[in-house]
């Protein structure tokens, strides 16, 4: 009797899950497969052409000067964005953890940029980092530097090919470091005061407490932050569109932007699909180990 009811429950569960399972299979995994198929085709005009050409699109892509620049930009962006957000986020969390007055107020201020879309961030930072010119005058950060007598620090920001993507990273760090702060703050609050006390009793100074007690305990938080920021960084597109476009000499170009242009402007649908596949592989290098890690942990619990 009991066994049969269980079976019935199971059936209902299965039926309830089925629609979303089918939808995810078709619209996520089906389309991933389709993109992979297109990436190995010869589809280079509007009219689809599914002739199989193997890995030719990938080989061509890696030899493409623009794609090489894009990969370099992406590496620089990811490195700066991750380290910047983690360091600033951690420092903010540590400061807020000192039981400052009006902590809620500061927390909200630091967290707010995250509620903006990258499009808004992009437009704002585009104006802030406007290079200006001697004839038309400066605006934004350059104007600020001028006013406080630091005019020699003025820069072309994202319009200077030597700065390029690094300027975009600044905007991204501004937006996401508050989020990292919130994650670290939650982590810090979870560390019992006794552990710190014990370390201090053992003669550790404040620096050593953080270095040898707090940071190791926060490692899961750091890992989570890296995964979340990392996949945002690899997929970055909207911030670039709103802030800079591909830039002079592709100094602010990223693979996602190139994918859009080559697909819908050069009609190289196969090449666009190949870029999509490469992006997917890069993101999965980051996500899959994390998934394995968390599944294993769930099993342990």
């Amino acid at each position: 009797m009991r066994k049969r009811r269980l079976k019935g429950e199971r059936l209902v569960t299965l039926l309830l899950l089925l629609p979303s399972v089918i939808a995810v299979c078709v619209f996520v995994y089906g389309f991933i497969g389709w993109t992979g198929y297109v990436s190995m085709s010869n589809w280079n005009q509007l009219l689809p052409d599914y002739t199989f050409v193997g890995l030719r699109n990938f080989l061509k892509l890696f030899a493409h000067p623009r794609f090489q620049i894009d990969l370099r930009n992406l590496a620089v962006f990811t490195a700066l964005f991750l380290t910047g957000s983690l360091i600033i986020g951690f420092l903010l969390a540590v400061l807020l953890d000192r039981k400052v007055r009006a902590e809620g107020f500061f927390r909200t201020i630091y967290l707010y940029p995250m509620s903006l879309s990258f499009i808004v961030t992009g437009v704002v930072w585009r104006w802030l980092m406007n290079p200006g010119s001697p004839q038309m005058g400066s605006t934004g950060i350059n104007l600020l530097l001028e006013k406080i007598g630091l005019g020699f620090l003025k820069s072309g920001w994202y319009t200077d090919p030597r700065v390029g993507i690094k300027a975009v990273a600044v905007a991204a760090i501004w937006q996401m470091s508050g989020y990292v702060m919130a994650m670290y703050l939650a982590g810090l609050r979870g560390i019992p005061e006794e552990l710190r006390e014990a370390a201090r009793v053992d003669g550790a100074n404040e620096w050593q407490v953080y270095r040898y007690v707090i940071l190791p305990l926060l490692r899961p938080i750091t890992l989570g932050a890296i995964i979340i920021l990392g996949h945002i960084s690899l997929k970055i597109y909207d911030l670039i569109v709103a802030m800079t476009g591909p830039g002079i000499g592709f100094s602010t170009d990223v693979p996602a932007y190139f994918m859009w242009e080559t697909t819908f402007h050069a009609n190289r649908f196969a090449q666009g699909a190949a870029i999509a596949v490469i992006l997917l592989l890069m993101v999965s290098l980051l996500i899959v180990p994390y998934l394995i890690f968390s599944v294993r942990r769930e099993a342990e619990v």
């Binding site: 280079n44 000067p65 623009r66 090919p161 591909p246 002079i248 000499g249 592709f250 100094s251 242009e261 080559t262 402007h265 050069a266 009609n267 190289r268």
Partner: peptide, 16 residues
Amino acid sequence: ESWVTDFKDAVNLFLA
């Protein structure tokens, strides 16, 4: 269009 894109990209790279 694919040629136009390549032409445009070549000039854009030249700027730097």
